[in-house]
């Protein structure tokens, strides 16, 4: 079975079933935004939502993660990696799935990161395809992440009365196989799917003023472009853009002694290239001074460096950085200004 169909009236039943199989996380409303949370009551899961405050990254690269358990006297280190239970991420947008693919590439590049791999191994991803824009901040069409491109176990598409489920892995198939109310998708279902996808083409239009090749080129030429001065002048260095990014993975390592002062834990904690001390060495030299250079670095880590290194853009088009920026720095405007040689709107 490659495509299955689930009637909407059976969605909650299926969510209960998923909940019985593994820990289930889904988007949930929080005030006027959304967050991924463990599903207690299946009614709370939102299938139509603006990207969550922080991406589901927190489940496979947690904000604060134990690396090591240590004792000073006698010197001892304990296995840093705990056993995790199986978990399912439900209703993940295709942009955030692209984010997971980026993180995979970065953490699987040797030397591999065992903590990351360990969590990832327990994870099942059930995506949902967006049929219209979440809001005006997204640039997923330019990044071509508005359509499913692998990296998931199951993918849901809302075709009206039903969800079409694309089965993309054995892990995924196990969650729909032998479920009485999930049937193989028929020819009629597939026809509707085609129609829905066709309609989508008229809704999603490239947000950048040119294609990605041109974007890549603009970053090649634009290292000293004045746009970085503009962006740097406006940036407050609050760090929001990096904290909410699905492909930012910089971290700091800190030791936390317990009150015995003889044993404790070594953690890694999310860190940001926008912070003042990020590239400072003990002698005092700061190797990336100034907000203009730090912002430029952030953009290059999305649109240039990873393309050279992994042949992959590390921008997923989710729009979170623009949404969360205190100073209204907008990614699409910045990239377009870099390409057009133009100035930013409210610079």
């Amino acid at each position: 079975m490659k495509y299955a169909a689930l009637k909407k009236e059976n969605l909650n039943k299926w969510l209960e079933y998923l909940k019985s199989k593994a820990r289930l996380y889904a988007p949930k409303k929080k005030e006027n935004q959304f967050v991924f949370r463990p599903v207690k009551n299946v009614d709370e899961a939102c299938l139509k939502y603006i990207p969550t405050v922080i991406p589901p990254k927190k489940y496979y690269f947690p904000q604060k993660e134990k690396l090591l358990k240590f004792t000073v006297e006698p010197f001892h280190t304990a296995k840093a990696i705990a056993e995790f239970e199986e978990f399912i991420l439900f209703a993940v947008h295709t942009c955030d799935i692209a984010g997971i693919q980026c993180m995979d590439v970065a953490f699987k590049e040797g030397p591999e990161d065992p903590n990351y791999l360990n969590r990832k191994e327990k994870m099942t991803i059930i995506g949902i395809e967006c049929l219209e824009y979440c809001d005006t901040h997204a640039n997923c069409a330019s990044m071509a992440t508005h359509v499913p491109r692998g990296g998931y176990d199951l993918m849901l598409v809302d075709i009206g009365e039903k969800f079409i489920i694309h089965i993309n892995s054995e892990k995924g198939e196990r969650l729909v196989r032998n479920v009485s109310y999930i049937k193989e998708a028929g020819a009629e279902d597939m026809a509707v799917l085609c129609f829905v996808r066709e309609k989508k083409k008229n809704i999603f239009k490239e947000e950048f003023s040119a294609g990605l090749d041109r974007v890549y080129q603009a970053f090649g030429d634009g290292f000293k472009h004045k746009v970085w001065q503009d962006v740097g002048r406006r940036c407050v260095a609050c760090g929001n853009c990096t904290m909410v990014c699905p492909t930012c993975y910089c971290f700091d390592v800190v030791d936390d002694m317990d009150l015995s002062l003889n044993s404790g834990l070594r953690y890694r904690i999310w860190n940001s290239c926008q912070m003042d001390d990020f590239a400072k060495v003990a002698g005092g030299e700061d190797f990336r001074k100034g907000r203009e250079n730090r912002q430029r670095h952030r953009y290059y880590r999305k649109f240039r460096y990873p393309v050279d290194k992994f042949n992959r853009y590390f921008c997923t088009g989710c729009g979170r950085c623009s949404r969360a920026c205190m100073a209204g720095i907008n990614l699409v405007e910045t990239v377009n200004a870099l390409m057009d040689g133009g100035k930013l709107n409210n610079a």
Binding site: K30, E31, N32, Q33, V35, T52, V53, I54, K58, Q63, K64, V236, A237, C238, G239, N240, M243, V244, W270, S272, M275, D276, D277, A324, M326
Partner: peptide, 17 residues
Amino acid sequence: NYAVCVECKMNENVCRY
């Protein structure tokens, strides 16, 4: 030496603004 926003985002609060 960084802003409260950093911790606030890690706690996944909805921005007060």
